[in-house]
Design a protein around this nucleic acid. Structure first.
Lengths: 352, 352
DNA sequence: TTGTACGCGTTATCAC
DNA sequence: GTGATAACGCGTACAA
């Protein structure tokens, strides 16, 4: 019978206590680190635990202590690399904090809503939510729980929850500054989808950065289309073929790294040197960007930091108790600019 | 005190029982679906549970019943899209089976070994392991547990565990058959990294498929290099520029979709029609493949099926009890060929 | 410092 | 079919 449905490793704290010849309380204290002394008793306990291949039953632990050392992550089913990086970053942050990670991926806002509700039924210290593209503020409505909920990324504010996101404006300003510091006096921008508020925000910030830094651009140098390699290739051919040095931009910023790779190939065909004559920057980083020729200078969201910040906010919410007043408190909003990963498609800095 | 560390939603089964005026046993039976009748009692219970926003405490449930409805997934920190798709597929399969998913991402075999050990301490119905690239068979040694462990993908067999993986040979044979059925009499193959056993297996299967189908190839048409766009571009230029129709292959198979996109761009430059004069297939599918011009015919691992199969094997292992004899049993090996996603870079089938 | 005993919320068992 | 009660494994207040 024991073997028919026995999960776990049959051994329990009682077995360890018996083998080490101490009480279960002592075992509990030693293994949870609440007994700091490293004397004979502690060693005996650890030895017994090791010999029996014992590990605490987290279900019992969570039930008893109301602390599960588990966080949950709810996110949409995007096939982009960004999503994969988020999972990795959150997983690493959880590991660092000695926490387990519960993951739920859902395609629709309704499914995500149900998911979050389910997470609340589990012994979870906090929930990180990456809202579906079209999810509105109602995503977490009607969910009454003491479990802290943190919004990570997403373009619409869930309100009432703390929110960790990317500063798109500051990011593109950093990109422009990067190429200007390296000698560019004119810049082109190949954007994909301005439909989303993120895209529009980025385009706006691009233009205001140019004003601020007194950099030249041209209506023909700002194009909006899909983010493919071929689009970068054809836009570049149109923009650069058969033009003099004063008729072409000295830098190209692309919102997609595929587009930027198309730009590189086209410039190669036109025998225009990168980064000597034209610098290229991608606002998105991935494996292809790192392995292109020349390797693409790209921007990357500091996801490790953002994941760690999310966990910090969760821990904070736990410590402060549920709410100060009546839950009317609005969430904090922490924004991180993207980092510049300098590679070979932009010049050496003058400051070096 | 209750509010200072209270996880969960304060309400428990007792509250529901009181409000519905039944015993806690009945509540448990109704909500777990073990009481099929849908009479007044059942409705009262469900209504009370809904009003109190009650959801079962899974920690208590797991503790008592030894069934946690939770599976764990351990995988390496690859930044490839494939990894992201695996996570999505396993997550979906888990949702379908009404299971929670515990995720652990680790960069080294040692870390992954520790991770699996940790998972065993949790109330988990099964563990799916996607071994690190360089992990050997020792990955799960010294881990004594009743929890079923299933290997998913990976190139070295963990032995003793059931293994769900991709049939590389059958996959490339399907790719060759696909273009041959559509009229190609000669095929080129642009491979990346033959270092891995997967790559070598694929190359071998490519060559034997050609023999089998009496298709022509050429030493110069089989190249091995990185998987970048530019490599596809330059290889194609070298292979096609200035040659007659009988000196070029009628189909190109690429192991990377980036390489295939480079091939498309180069053929476009050379005014060679795709798929009219040359068909192109990528053994790897992603967003870029779908949005290129023409859209790339690609192959995709049937990850949904593979994830579902993994869950089935876990359920099976549970039902059969731990082991038949002494754990000396070797795991089953289930292989799935990749699916062909027919798009515009190959012709219409003659059979249609 | 160590051990005893209780209780966390749920499901399984048994009597009705 | 329903209800009372024991038990799951652990953490901790309290007694020693």
């Amino acid at each position: 019978m024991a073997s028919s449905h026995g999960k776990q490793n049959g051994t329990s704290i009682t077995d360890v206590a018996a083998l080490a010849d101490v009480s279960i309380a002592t075992v509990s204290r030693v293994l949870s680190g609440r007994r700091t002394k490293d004397d004979d008793i502690a060693r005996r306990v650890r030895k017994a635990a090791h010999e029996l291949n014992y590990s605490v039953n987290s279900a019992a632990s969570a039930l008893r202590s109301d602390v599960s050392n588990t966080i949950a992550l709810s996110m949409p089913a995007t096939s982009t690399l960004m999503a994969a990086s988020v999972v990795t970053a959150v997983s690493e942050a959880a590991s660092t904090a000695h926490m387990q990670l519960l993951l739920g991926i859902d395609g629709t806002a309704a499914a995500q809503h149900r998911r979050i509700k389910t997470f609340c039924g589990h012994p979870t210290d906090g929930i990180i939510v990456l809202p579906c593209p079209r999810a509105g503020v109602s995503l977490t409505w009607g969910i009454a729980t003491d479990t802290p909920i943190i919004q990570l990324l997403g373009s619409t504010n869930l309100l009432r929850h703390d929110w960790v996101s990317i500063d798109n404006g500051a990011s593109v300003e950093l990109a422009v500054t990067h190429v200007v510091e390296r000698g560019a006096a004119s810049v082109a921008y190949l954007s994909d989808e301005v439909a989303s508020s993120d895209g529009a925000e980025t385009l706006l910030a691009f233009q205001s950065s140019l004003n601020l830094l007194h950099v030249r651009t041209d209506n023909e140098w700002i194009t909006i289309a899909d983010g493919t390699v071929q689009r970068g290739f054809s836009d570049t051919m149109r923009m650069f073929a058969g033009r003099g040095a004063d008729q072409i931009p000295e830098a190209v910023i692309c919102s997609s790294s595929d587009t930027a790779i198309g730009v590189l190939i086209a410039l190669g065909q036109l025998s225009i040197n990168v980064p000597g004559q034209v610098q290229v920057v991608s606002l998105q980083d991935n494996e292809a960007a790192a392995s292109s020729t020349p390797a693409l200078t790209s921007m990357r969201a500091p996801l490790q930091q953002m994941a760690a910040e999310s966990l910090r906010l969760i821990a904070n919410a736990q410590a402060n108790g549920s709410d100060t007043e009546m839950g009317a408190r609005l969430g904090r909003h922490v924004m991180f600019p993207r980092l510049v990963i300098a590679r070979q498609s932009t010049r050496e800095s003058n400051d070096d």
